[in-house]
Design a binder for these strands. Structure first.
Lengths: 229, 229
DNA sequence: TGAATGGAACGTTAATTAAGGTTAAAATTT
DNA sequence: AAATTTTAACCTTAATTAACGTTCCATTCA
């Protein structure tokens, strides 16, 4: 199995290096980003398993970054690491979608323990190995572009598969339309926006067999992939 | 919907009472246990949704209690609350199956935020039957944007659904108009205020089938969602 | 005191605008 | 050629804006 990937956003180079190296010693793959503006693109390229965010950054603060990340992925664990000790700051951290909040100075041991704890908590929900994702009565193998049900397998095209993966990763959560466009087509022009419509129609068609699944439109926002049981 | 149940183990009566009451104010159902030996039986009787454990207790310490609980339930969230500030103590807390560790003195706000965070994290993983809220003779499935009655389902739009959820969460209580505007539209400008009127009208229309339900205007304040039975 | 009056707050309905859905054909790619 | 992707035309629905109606309350003045 490949290493667990951590996206680490920190502008302080000295601290950043220590933390990065300490995590790497524990066999994590760490990608450190110092500029908040770059986080989105790195996130999309890396597909990390967990994010560790410093709050106070020059351009874009950690809270804003967390909100951006949440639009791309509703479930990935986010830990804030910050010198801000006020309870209000902590509350804000959880409000914007954070899952833990660690005050500086912290011990590396504590960070590692908390990272592992969150990974464990969320691993159970992400149904473990990403080989195949459960979608209601379907099973989706993203790397094979295959949607299975009752033994029958349907091959998906590239765009279909990427789009379905985004939905599958964010079951029962709101997904930002722009984020979807960016991830599938790389930009959100008018034509690609129509294009997204086309592919949503196709996926609805494929998923129609299971009535407990529904791609709900949220006008002006995006979609909500409702999956019952 | 029934309240979220917290099993709270604490031997210090003064602190215990404050914490218990603060949690109860937030609408949690709290069962406080002072003797570690009693935890198992209370746990089995109560079936709590989350456990908050003090570590230092006279007979049996919090770590041992956590291990007992883990034998009964592998996934229920456990938060330690303790005066022990050493990293080793924290590590031990996670080792025995804890999911968060809060050092005393802590703010109630922080405890509540962390409790809610864990509940949310584990709710997703247990993927349990996503709630549906009863509204008189209707049943409302917020995540499906669906309002059901006698088998018939009516699809709601995003705004309609969010608004109805606010009402449903506050049945038979006064709801502040401004708060509703902020939650649905994010601001309370004049136009959105007219907008709220429009959507209230729509919901009244949908809910007309059940005459025991009424959205009552409280001028200058907001609404009162009266639901009989 | 109490009926008239005016205005603020909310309700209703309809029109408009914006967003998205569907389908099919054209253009690519394989 | 077959499959996939993009473009395009047309359709449907949600959300907003607008116009006008109603209710309630406060103030005034007979």
């Amino acid at each position: 199995m490949s290493k667990t990937k951590i996206l680490y956003v920190e502008d302080e180079p000295f601290l950043g290096r220590i933390v990065k190296e300490s995590l790497e010693v524990r066999d994590f793959e760490v990608r450190m980003v110092t500029d908040g503006k770059l986080v989105q693109s790195v996130f999309e390229e890396l597909h990390p398993d967990i994010c560790v965010l410093d709050v106070m950054l020059p351009n874009k603060d950690g809270y804003a970054i967390a909100q951006d990340i949440r639009k791309l992925n509703a479930t990935i664990p986010i830990i804030f690491v910050t010198a801000k000790t006020q309870t209000e700051d902590l509350i804000k951290g959880f409000e914007v979608g954070g899952n833990d909040y660690l005050r500086k100075p912290f011990s590396m041991e504590e960070l590692i323990v908390r990272v592992n704890n969150l990974l464990q908590l969320t691993q159970k929900l992400s149904s473990g190995p990403k080989e195949s994702i459960a979608i209601g009565k379907f099973e989706f193998a993203p790397q094979r572009y295959e949607l299975r049900k009752d033994g029958k397998a349907k091959k998906l095209s590239h765009r279909e598969a990427v789009l379905l993966q985004i939905l599958a990763e964010n079951q029962n959560a709101n997904i930002d339309r722009k984020a979807m466009l960016m991830r599938v087509w790389g930009d959100d022009s008018f034509f690609n926006s129509r294009n997204l419509d086309v592919y949503i129609t196709k996926l609805r068609e494929y998923l129609r067999e299971d009535s407990s699944i529904e791609i709900i439109t949220i006008k002006g926002v995006g979609y909500h992939f409702a999956v019952g049981n």
